[in-house]
């Protein structure tokens, strides 16, 4: 479905070239792909390159056989790529229902909007008319962000650290959101995460270190070596 070919992302900092991503090659075809690695290893940068928010300084992206490297964020979204931000954006005046309608790409009923909110564990009635502004907590925003991607239901969805702020809800619920989503879209879901519980459902795990793919493979191949290395956080660390 999505092929990353030799993706590089260099920036200039104080006159020196900094390699944020170097020669990343990756094929995304599986149901759940977990992207993990230490903070600052380039995970969010890679996700933004997939969504078209950042343009790679080298390499190509091929989506269903088409070279999408030069396509805009909008064009990629229309082709079936969705992205849940690590830090969701706030909007003064745009309500939760507005945002979910925009995500769905059509006018949706209050009932439908509520359905997406309930899936992410928000009591829809309390949220539907709230503005997506600073009055919402980080955790609430995170779940609304996930709901926008659910409402799109595209072939490829990328979630950047979706577990942040969901302590009061539960990982099991988050996991069932992904499972249900897969049943609907039959596509690929890329989840950037440090959490063992989430890595545990991955069909493929990719470990990014200092902008390079250090290892990739099935859960069975990768997960045991991650436990205890600090790359992967067990659930208990967080709670």
């Amino acid at each position: 479905m999505l092929e990353l070919q030799n993706i590089c992302f260099d920036v200039e900092e104080n006159g020196a070239i900094k390699h944020i991503l170097s020669d990343v090659c990756l094929t995304i075809n599986d149901r759940f792909v977990a992207l993990t690695g230490p903070n600052g290893s380039g995970k969010s940068t890679l996700a933004k390159i997939i969504a078209g928010i950042l343009t790679p300084t080298g390499g190509k992206l091929i989506f269903n056989g088409e070279d999408i490297t030069a396509l805009s964020v909008t064009e990629r979204a229309k082709r079936g790529i969705s992205f849940a931000f690590q830090q969701p954006v706030r909007f003064k005046g745009i309500t939760v229902k507005d945002l979910i309608s925009l995500a769905a790409g059509k006018h949706i009923t209050v009932g439908e909007a509520c359905g997406f909110l309930s899936e992410v564990g928000l009591c829809a009635r309390d949220y539907i008319d709230r503005e997506v502004n600073a009055s919402l907590s980080g955790g609430e925003l995170k779940r609304i962000e996930i709901a926008t991607v659910l409402a799109r239901g595209t072939e490829l969805s990328v979630f950047d650290e979706p577990e942040a702020g969901i302590d009061l809800w539960s990982f099991q619920n988050l996991i069932s959101v992904f499972e249900k989503m897969y049943q609907k879209t039959q596509g690929s879901i890329v989840i950037i995460s440090h959490q063992e519980r989430i890595l545990n459902i991955a069909d493929k795990i990719v470990v990014l270190t200092a902008g390079k793919i250090e290892r990739e493979g099935t859960r069975e191949e990768i997960l045991p070596s991650l436990l205890g290395t600090g790359v992967c956080r067990a659930l208990t660390d967080k709670l």
Partner: peptide, 13 residues
């Protein structure tokens, strides 16, 4: 970032 978020939902700039 507000414009970009809405673009990821399929809206033009």
């Amino acid at each position: 970032e507000q414009i970009i978020k809405l673009m990821t939902l399929g809206l033009t700039e």
